[in-house]
Every structure is written in C-alpha cells, then in structure tokens.
C-alpha cells in the first residue's frame, strides 16, 4: 500500500503567473525611449519614424501584457482593480503634467499626437505593473 501525498497547498505567493510585469516594463521602456528621443529634438520638430516605431512596438507589448492578464484565473482581482483604479488616476495626472509641458512649449500636430500616445502607454502601463505585482500576492 502506498500512501498518497496530500496535494501541496497553493498560496498566492506560490502561483505561477505569466510575465505580465516584464512585458509591460518593456512597453514602458520603449515609450520612455520614444519620449526622450522626441524631447532631445525639442523645441524643433522631431523626425517621427523612430518614435512611431517605438510607439507601435510598445503598444503591441502592452496589448500582449493585457492579453496574458486576461487568461489568468487564480488571482487577487479585487485588489488588482482597487490598486489599478487609484494608480491609474495618479499616473494619468503625471502623464497630463508631462503632456502639458510639451503643449505649453508649442508642441502641436503629429508630434503632439505621438507624444500623447506614448504617454498613454506610460499612464496605463505603470498602473498595470503596480496592480499586477500587488494582486499576485493576494487571495482571489
């Protein structure tokens, strides 16, 4: 007769989760590089090829991050939403401040649109990282 080992207790800390943080940090890093590239040209009009490329890849990575998140089942969703809501408010405010600095200094047209979209990645990505990191250690 063999004794069957009891199933190992699954705790929030022992969950295996997809690399949402790593992928989203990649998206934010690209957005930051794009922002720095454009700020380096300011107040002149920057060439938009590189920032648009970074924007597209960054947006795709952010989408992948959300896609991976949507497949997670055992997760602290309530805490994730609570933290996400407040951090989103905070980082939308921060992104708004950065956007205001560009607008105040005469950014307009296509460069402004690219900057705003890069800021959207920043303002959405940071709350995703923070709330995912908190949610992974919380019970469902």
């Amino acid at each position: 007769m063999t004794a069957q080992a009891p199933p190992a207790e699954t705790t929030p800390a022992s969950r295996v989760l997809p690399p949402v943080v790593e992928v989203t940090v990649g998206a934010i890093a690209l957005a930051i590089v794009g922002g720095i590239y454009m700020a380096g040209y300011f107040p002149r009009r920057p060439p938009l090829g590189v920032p648009i490329g970074l924007l597209v890849v960054g947006a795709a990575l952010l989408g992948v991050g959300f896609g991976m998140l949507s497949r997670v089942e055992d997760f602290g969703w309530r805490t994730f939403r609570l933290v996400g809501k407040w951090t989103l408010a905070a980082y939308v405010l921060q992104a708004g401040m950065i956007g205001y600095a560009f607008v105040h200094n005469g950014a307009s047209g296509a460069p402004l649109v690219v900057i705003i979209l890069l800021l959207v990645i920043f303002a959405v990505g940071v709350p995703l990282i923070i709330s995912f990191t908190v949610g992974r250690y919380q019970a469902e």
Binding site: V25, V126, I130, T133
Partner: peptide, 22 residues
C-alpha cells in the same frame, strides 16, 4: 533618467505598494 524611471516604475514602486498590502 529613462533607465532610472524604468527601474523605479517597474520594480521599486510596485514592491513598495505590494509590501504595504501584505
């Protein structure tokens, strides 16, 4: 500053808030 921002936003700040929730 860009590298610092990525570390701060991707590692430091989330760890800070997660400790508080724990």
């Amino acid at each position: 500053v860009g590298v610092m921002a990525a570390i701060a936003l991707g590692v430091l700040e989330p760890a800070n808030i997660a400790v508080l929730f724990e």
